[in-house]
C-alpha cells in the first residue's frame, strides 16, 4: 500500500490536470464565442483596452529596452571570439523580434494583466458581485470575460510590436554609444536583415499570448475559492498557468513559423 502511494498521487495529479485542461478549453471556447454574440459591452472593452494596452506600455517598453541592450552586449562579447562583431545588429533584431520581444512582453503581460484580472474577478466572486451581475440579467462571461479577451487579442500584438522596436532601439543605443558601431550602418543592417515573416510571427505570438493572459486571468478569477486565500490562490494560479502556456505556445508558434 505504502509503495503504491506515490503512484496514486501521480494518478490523481494527472487526472486533475486533464480535468483542468478540459475546463480551461471549454471556458476559452465559451469566452471566444461570447466575443461574437450580442450584447456587446463597449465601455468595458475600452477600459480593458486602456488597462491592458496603454498602462502596460511602460513595463513592456522598459523590459524590451534593457533586454535589447543586454543582448547587444552579449552578442558582441560572444562574436568577438570568432571576429564576427558585425552581426550584432542582425542578431539583436532577429532575437528581439522573433523571440525576446514577444516572450518577455507576454510574460510581463502575464505578471501585470493576468494577475490583475484574476484578483479583480475573484474579489467580485467572493463579494457576490458575479451573482449580482446574473440577477441583473447580465452574463458574466459577456460582461467580464469577452471584453478583456478581445482587448488583449487586439492590443497585445501592438504592444509586442512597440516592444520589438524599443528592444532593437536598446541594442542600437548600446551598440552605437558603447561598442562603437556606426549608427546609419546599424539601422541599415537591421532593416535589411529583417523579413516580413519575422514581424508577422512576432505579432501572431503577441495575439496568442494576449489571449492566453486574459483568458487565464478570467478563468482563475471566475473559479476562485472563498475568502482572501481563494483570491490569492486564483491570482497565483493564473500567473503560473499563463506563464507556462505562453512559453509552450511560443515553442509551438516558433515551430510553425520557422520549423524545418
Amino acid at each position: 500500500m505504502i509503495a503504491a502511494a506515490p503512484l496514486a498521487y501521480l494518478g490523481r495529479q494527472t487526472l486533475a490536470l486533464l480535468a483542468l485542461t478540459g475546463q480551461v478549453s471549454l471556458f476559452t471556447a465559451q469566452g471566444l464565442s461570447h466575443i461574437f454574440r450580442p450584447p456587446f459591452y463597449g465601455r468595458e472593452f475600452l477600459v480593458a483596452l486602456l488597462q491592458i494596452g496603454w498602462l502596460s506600455l511602460p513595463v513592456v517598453g522598459l523590459t524590451a529596452f534593457f533586454t535589447g541592450g543586454a543582448l547587444a552586449l552579449q552578442i558582441y562579447d560572444g562574436s568577438t571570439r570568432f571576429s564576427a562583431e558585425a552581426v550584432v545588429p542582425q542578431i539583436v533584431a532577429i532575437g528581439m523580434v522573433r523571440e525576446l520581444g514577444p516572450v518577455l512582453g507576454g510574460l510581463m503581460i502575464a505578471a501585470r494583466v493576468t494577475s490583475s484580472i484574476a484578483a479583480e474577478i475573484a474579489t467580485m466572486k467572493v463579494t457576490e458581485q458575479i451573482d449580482a451581475l446574473v440577477t441583473l440579467s447580465t452574463h458574466p462571461m459577456k460582461y467580464l470575460t469577452a471584453p478583456r479577451v478581445l482587448a488583449a487579442l487586439l492590443v497585445v500584438p501592438a504592444l509586442v510590436g512597440v516592444g520589438d522596436v524599443i528592444g532593437v532601439f536598446g541594442g542600437f543605443i548600446v551598440s552605437t554609444q558603447q561598442l562603437g558601431f556606426n549608427p546609419s550602418t546599424y539601422i541599415h543592417n537591421t532593416v535589411d536583415f529583417l523579413e516580413v515573416r519575422d514581424v508577422l510571427s512576432s505579432l501572431a505570438k503577441g495575439c496568442a499570448f494576449g489571449g492566453i493572459a486574459a483568458t487565464m486571468g478570467c478563468y482563475f478569477g471566475m473559479n476562485s475559492g472563498r475568502g482572501a486565500q481563494g483570491v490569492g490562490q486564483a491570482t497565483k494560479g493564473s500567473v503560473q498557468a499563463a506563464a507556462v502556456l505562453i512559453l509552450a505556445a511560443n515553442f509551438l508558434l516558433t515551430s510553425l513559423f520557422f520549423g524545418t
Binding site: V47, T123, M124, T127, E128, Q129, D131, A132, T135
Partner: peptide
C-alpha cells in the same frame, strides 16, 4: 427579480 445581497455586492468600479 430584484435582490439585495448580504454585503451589498455593489460594483466597485
Amino acid at each position: 427579480f430584484g435582490m439585495l445581497f448580504q454585503g451589498g455586492a455593489l460594483f466597485d468600479s
